[in-house]
Structure formats: C-alpha cells, structure tokens
Nucleic acid binder design. Structure first.
Lengths: 217, 217
DNA sequence: GATAGCTTGCATCGAACGTTCGAACTCCCT
DNA sequence: AGGGAGTTCGAACGTTCGATGCAAGCTATC
C-alpha cells in the first residue's frame, strides 16, 4: 500500500533539511526563505508540501516522535525484566536522540511553538512516552519514599538535556552513555552500598573556611 | 556605594517583566512593543534603559546568573562535607530556579540568542557553575568507572529540566525536591543496598532475543 | 526658578517576514 | 500527438519588526 513516491521522498528531504535549520537557528529565527535556499526548492514551491510554517514544524515533530515511539514499542515488546526494560528505554531514547540530534533538539526546544490541534497531537505522543517510562519505574518497586513523578521527569531531564552538551566527536557513543545513565539512575554514582540518608546540615560546622571560592565576595 | 536609586528599581522592574514575557512568548516572538505595553513604559522610554533588544536579554540573563552564583558561593563557603556540599548546590539551584522560573527559563531556553561579547560573558558564568558542580562530584570520590563529564551534565539535566514540568501548585517545594534529587543522584532510586551491575543479558534467556545489546562490538 | 535627569507621543525608516496567485513547466496515460 | 493532473516558479502583497529622531513635558534638587 504505502508506495514510495517521489513526492514522499522530497517531502522527507525537506523535513530533514528544515529540522537542521530549525535546530541551528531556532524555529522563529529561521525563515521559509532559509529553508528554500537550503533545500533548493523555491519559496512558493515549498508551500506545495505544507500549508504553513507551523505545519512544517508539526510534521517534523510528529514524524520524529512517531518513529521514537514505534521503536520503543518494538524493543520493549520482548523484554520483561524491569531493569532491562529501563535500560532498553534509555538506550532507545539516547540512540535515537543522538542519531537525530536536529529533530530531537527541535522536539525539545520548540514544544511551545505549536498550538491548537498540532500541539495536542504532539503532546499526546509525548504523554505516551512519559507514561511508558513511569510504568517501568513503577515495576521497579522503588523506595516508596521516592516520588514517581519527580523521578520520571528527572530521568527525562537527564536524557533530554544532552542536546545542550553532547558532541559526537568528544563523548561516548549512545550505547555506552545509556549504560552510564542507567547505572547512574538506578543508584550508581557512588559505589558504596550503604546510603544512609543524605545528610542535612550539621549545625556544628567548621569555621568559615571557603573551600571553593571562585568568585566575587 | 551601591545606592538604591529609582533608576535601579525601575530597571529591575523592567527586567522582571521582560523576563516574564520572554519566558512566555520566547525572545524572538516577543516585541519591544509587548514589553512597553506590559511595563507601561513608552517604546522610546525603554531605550533609555538599554541600547538594544539583545542587551535587554543579556541583562536578564546576566543578572539572574550573577545572583545564582553569588548565593552559591555564600552557601558553599561554610560547608566542607562533599555530600552536604552537593546537597547545598542542588538546593540552591532548585530554590533559585523555582523562585525565578521566568528568568531561569529564559536562561535555559535562550542561551543561543545572544552573540558576541554578551554571549561570552554569560557563557563564562555558566562555565563557572558547571565547574563548581564538577569539582564537588570529584570530591565525592565516585566509582571510577563513572564518567565525570556525563555525570555532571546528567545532574544539570535533572535540575534544569524542571521548567518543563514543575508546577508550584502541584509539586513539592524546592527544599524537598532538592532532597529527593540529591538522594536520587547519590544512588537513591532503589533502596536495596546491593547494586551489582545493571544486569547484562543472561545468555540462558529466551531464544535469540538480544536482551542487552550494549556497546560497540 | 533654573538646571539636569528622565519620560512621553508620534512619525518614520529600511528590512524581513509568511503567504498568495496565476502562469508555466514536466510527466504520464492514452 | 495531445491533454490533464501534478509540480514548480517568480513576483508581489500586506504586515510587523527593531530602531531612531525630535519637540515637549515632567520632577526633584539646588
């Protein structure tokens, strides 16, 4: 059924190039003229493939999120152990993120730039992803003192923030990064087994030694 | 020295209102006319307080970051224990973040909107904050297998992401959130003492499913 | 009541923006 | 060879933007 027409291919090319530009300059900064120049399609010619700049943004986001979710479903389908499921979710997320930095930056950064029906559709997909993560965390039977909402968003924060710092030529590949983050999230930063409560301030503290003093008094 | 003139107060009010607008509409979306309307200062009147829209954005970011760093210095000065220092950093960060959501959203979201000298100055402050966190993590003597760069940015991701989900009326106050995140980061999601490595796949498992395919080759 | 700092309204500039429209081109089916 | 649908284009529209200039008025301090 889904025949691969020339139309489809050109549209996908436009989406890819536009995502790059949106990622680099920001959605509102980037002009349709920029995209026309980069795609080598005329200004008016672009409007044959979408009705408005906002729809173009929507198509990028929806396509990216759809792919991410589809892969997640596929990957999670054949694993039951909660820890491994968490690891798979993180790996899937990071792999796709790093492999499609532009799209994912647009997704993270321009969430508010959509409105109306466009916004609703993307938000629904986002919610599905959040719930998937949350339900895995539930399966893990965490310390009941842990707030699940906080933990879920902490996890996504950890993962999604990478577009602010990750460099392919400098940082480890996604699979390795996924291991690190899984380990970290499941309690891996300090190796020591005993984790008594994080200390609250001790009133009998020492003098006024400023250990880390870098800045203005 | 620093006398509190009417000029200063009005400027700060402008910065505050402008931050609100930038946070809500985005920097490029918001017009100087929007800010004139909201501050009830005339269009030309605004330009008495800054020379360009970009400088206005810079003033907001620099002021917010400056305050954050100043408070951090003060708070860390009287604590030596690395765990408590980490807790203080997180608490300071979240408290300021949540108390100044608009400014911090602008800071996180419009980092790329500055250029030249403005950009340089803000980047320097950002770097100082990153290094402060990193050096505390070093003091903690973590599992040497942990990559410090990754861990540092994971921590900031966890914290900075909150502007995407935190609601004052729904979520816990910053102090409590700081405890949760400190606990989480130091290894608190699962309570169990023994954290053997995150499971690598058990070869005796089901069929040919690749359970945990990590790492290149 | 003069002086300096601050503020206003209004008019205007050039540049850039998203979008539209009718004409033209290309390709395939007959 | 011809026709029609699908695709592409150049040119232009109307609007908004950041920024500036200017004459006038306000207000507080000496």
């Amino acid at each position: 059924m889904t025949k691969r027409t020339a139309y489809d291919e050109k549209l996908e090319r436009i989406l890819r190039v536009a995502a790059d530009i949106f990622a680099r300059k920001g959605y509102h900064q980037a002009s349709i003229r920029d995209i026309a120049r980069a795609t080598e399609v005329s200004l008016s010619g672009l409007y044959y493939y979408f009705d408005s700049k906002e729809e173009l943004l929507f198509l990028i986001q929806d396509h990216a999120f759809g792919t991410l979710l589809r892969r997640l479903d596929r990957v999670l389908a054949r694993e039951e152990d909660p820890r491994r499921r968490l690891h798979l979710l993180i790996e899937n997320h990071l792999r796709f993120f790093i492999g499609n930095m532009a799209e994912m930056k647009v997704l993270s950064h321009e969430a508010d730039s959509l409105s109306g029906e466009f916004r609703r559709i993307v938000d629904t997909k986002k919610r599905r992803l959040t719930l998937a993560a949350r339900s895995i965390l539930e399966e893990l039977n965490p310390d009941p003192a842990v707030d699940l909402r906080t933990a879920t968003f902490a996890l996504f924060g950890m993962m999604n923030w990478i577009y602010n710092w990750y460099r392919e030529d400098r940082d480890m590949p996604p699979e390795e990064l996924a291991e690190h983050m899984t380990q970290l999230f499941l309690g891996g930063f300090l190796q020591e087994g005993n984790l008594d409560n994080v200390p609250s301030g001790d009133p009998s503290a020492e003098g006024d030694t400023r250990i880390w003093s870098s800045g203005p008094g």
